[in-house]
Structure formats: structure tokens, C-alpha cells
Simulated assay, not measured.
Amino acid sequence: MTFVAVPTAARERALGPDLARGFMLLFIALANSHYFLVAHGYFGGYPYGGGTVDGVVAWLITTFVDGRSFPMFGLLFGYGVAQIVRRQGDAPRRTVRRLLWRRALVLIVVGFLHATLLYAGDILTAYGVLLLVGAWMVHWRGRWLLLVAGAMLVLIALPSADSLATSVLGPDPSALPRTWADIVGRAEVSAFVATLGPIGFLAPFAVGLWAGRRRILERPEQHLALLRTVAAVGIVVAVLAAQPVALVHLDVLPLPDASTRNVIGPLHDVSGLLGGLGYAAIVTLIGRRVPRGRVVEAIRATGQRSMTCYLTQSVVWTVAFTPALLDLSDDLSVLGVALLAVATWVFTVLLAHRIQRSGSRGPFETLVRRVTYGPTSHVR
């Protein structure tokens, strides 16, 4: 019997996951933008000693965004993979793996080009590599998925010299859009991120697979107690555990020494994973109550076109911070880049809504579907 793989039609998509993806892109813009700033001293990826206003903005982003947005991305990525697998019904496992590997391949190729030409901090390549392995995980029992997530959580929480050790040195110059002569170096950075990135994303990905099987974000009315608990516990823990790092920006705490950074860095990271889960839960709960007006539909459209909107952010960073273009790295403050990030997200929301009204998908979503499902998938 011949099996024909098909994607999920837009009209069949649940609100919760798409709304969460749309909001997530705001957090990703805020998390990425401050790394382009140039200053004399840094902590946690921010210029240090920039004044009260910049300190408050850095505190807010460190507390609520940094290390919290990408775990949410990982959860939603795993959730989406579970949806894809469920959509294939009784297809042979080998067929499902090949479908997922095709999807992984396009993520790796697009992500590598993105990292090489625009932004070396790309995460698409890492997710593509993760999916190569994740294609074998999609049929694991739920307890094994949670066990893997728990083990990775413990591993991330261990004292580490890598988490905040380099944050006092400022942003990695390779992450900045540079001249064409840096392409080889940026390609090497992309390969490095693709190699290590999947390790950090494995825990939320596994939880996303587990949650996606149970359709928790699609059918929140059946999982209200779980969602409320995850939202409350995850966000509260993330906020409190961020303070040893965040309060440094307010000058409430002094700059930590190396041994202290080795502890508070992993604490910030592991609590961020819980915070990412909490954000996904609370956005889903809010989505049950909020009227579906233009704003909600626009954010939902952004979530449905998250790859296009994510790549669009990098175009903005390239124009804003490339030395040969606007070269704003020396000119903007932490507040300035935060406002630029918000404006960029609003632009992508308007762009996604415009694309939706035209009746088409985003260009990169169309590309992924055609590679994954075949040339006729765009009609769904």
C-alpha cells in the first residue's frame, strides 16, 4: 500500500501553539538584539554600568526573557513534531522518520545559510540536527521522554564555567554581521552551534513530544490543572532564580567572581527551561479567554509563519548593525535595542497578517512543506 504524507491544513490548526509561537518571537527578538551592542564592559551579554534606565531594561529582559524564550521555542518545536507524527496516522515508522529527516535537512540548509550570511546565532541548524536524532525519539514511551528531559535538566544545572564565564567579555564578534571576508569563520561558528545546540534543546524538545502526543496545548480544557500548575510554578521559579544574575544590572548585587558565575549561570539556565514551559502554558490559558479579534489573529498568523518572521528579524539586525550599513552597535543603548526589537516584532506581526490575508503561507514555510511533503503540499 502506498502512503501519501500530508501536512496539517491551516484551518485545522489549534490556536494555542500558534499563539505561543507568535509571542515567542517577541522574546527571541529581545533576547538576540542586545548582543550586538559594543561597550567597554559587559555582564550577562549587556553593557555594564550604562545607567539606571539601561539597568532596569537589562533586569527585565534577564528576568523574563533571556534563557526563557529558546526553551519555549524548543518545547513548541517538539510539540509540532508530535503533531506531524500524529497526522501521519498508521504510516510505517520508517516512512515517518524519512519525512522528519527531510524536514531536518531543509532546516539545516536554511539555518547554515542564515548563520553564514546574516546571524551566526542561528538556531535552525541546531534544531535540524536535533530532529535527525529526534526522528527516532518520536515513538518512545512517554516515561522515557520525561526521563531524558529530567536528566538533561540535571546536567544543565551542574556548575559550569561556560554559562556566564564569557559574558563579562561582551558579545561574540562572530555573531555580528561582518564583511564577506568573515564568511568562512561564520560557517565554522554555525557548525559549532549545530553540534552543541541540540544538547541544550533536548530537554524542552522531549517535553514537547510528550505534550504533543496528549494535545495539551490544543485541548487546554482537558488539562487545566496541569497548565495552571506549570504556568505558576515555571514562571515563579524562573523569575526568582534569575535574580542572582538580574540584580547585578541594578547594582543591587556586585559583579560576581568566576566561581559564583559558575553557579548562578546554570541556575539561570535551568530555571529558564521551566520558565519556557510556564510561558507556553500561560499563553495557552490566555488563548482560551481572549476574544479572537484582529490582534489575536495577527499574532496567530505570526506563529504560523514563525520561520519567515524569525529570519526577517535577522535582516533587520543586518541592516541595523553591519558596519557597512547603519552600524548602530556604538550608538544604541540597551533601551534602544529593546525598542528596536519590539518594533521589529510588530513589523513581522503586520507582515504575517498581510501574508495571511493574501491567502498564502510564508515563503520559508512553503519551502519546508514542499521539501517535507512534496510539491503539492502548498495547496493545503
Rank of each mutant, 00 (worst) to 15 (best):
R380Q: 12
L164C: 03
P177A: 03
V96L: 03
Q222L: 14
F3Q: 02
T372R: 03
F77K: 14
R213G: 11
L250H: 14
A232F: 13
G170A: 10
H249V: 07
D182L: 10
R261P: 04
A149R: 13
H353G: 04
R98V: 06
L339H: 14
G272C: 11
G272E: 07
F36A: 12
L15T: 00
G303S: 06
L351A: 00
V57F: 11
R93I: 14
G150W: 11
S333N: 12
D172A: 10
A181R: 07
L202F: 14
N262F: 06
P254S: 01
G89W: 12
A165S: 06
V252R: 11
M307P: 04
V207P: 11
A341D: 04
V342P: 01
G55K: 05
R300Q: 07
D54G: 04
V193S: 10
Y279C: 06
L326M: 15
P92D: 05
D269A: 05
T284F: 03
F73R: 04
V184N: 13
D257H: 07
P173Q: 13
L326N: 00
A181K: 12
V245P: 02
H40Y: 04
F73H: 07
W59H: 15
L37D: 07
A352R: 00
A149I: 11
D172V: 05
L285Y: 01
R102L: 09
L130I: 05
L164I: 12
A181M: 12
V316P: 01
D251I: 02
